[in-house]
Design a protein around this nucleic acid. Sequence first.
DNA 1: GACCAGGCACATC
DNA 2: GATGTGCATGGT
Length: 209
Amino acid sequence: MDIYRALFGRWGPQHWWPGDTPLEISVGAVLTQNTNWRNVEKAIANLKKNRALNVRALEQAPAGKLAEWIRPAGYFNVKAKRLKAFIGTVRETSGYTMSRMAGIETGELRRILLETSGIGPETADSILLYAFERPVFVVDAYTRRMLTRHHWIAQNASYADIAELFTDALPNKTQLFNEYHALIVKLGKEHCKKNARCEGCPLEKWLPA
DNA sequence: GACCAGGCACATC
DNA sequence: GATGTGCATGGT
């Protein structure tokens, strides 16, 4: 909680997710896998331009066409398949409608998302938190890096270990998890590049003594 | 030109 | 169960 207060005190609310509808957020969650968000924005703009950012259009678009539209996001052939797989899950569980999908209970919905090819724990939790507003903590590369570089967790801690660290220490509030993850990404983008060491990290000096 | 970015599936040992 | 590899664009 101290870390959260330090980050929030420094940067304030991050207004995540940068996307409007549950579908746009879910698509963004897949496209941003190991990819800079700026490239994802271009891909999403292409989908909008081609009126493809709806469940039916994504269902009907040929995979090759889809890949062409999302090209700027990288891994475009892989991600086209992953978007198709996600739409398939929406069809099978919810009859093509995101609003019906929103009626599924959180644990069940997480299981369903994880069964979808191309959706792993981070993508599933991002969709749960930001598209469906469930109180779920998202663990990403920045989260792990922040914790390991400050020696707050072991190098080999699992996704579940890290998520538990936060959920055990925090009130179970969607808005809190929303801001916290976004703030960790902000910190990461500013200070935690992959191959940089941690000396310049300002976090410790923001924490209470 | 090297390095990096809000992962994941799959092969291999 | 751990470890390695392919996937690919665009910015610094």
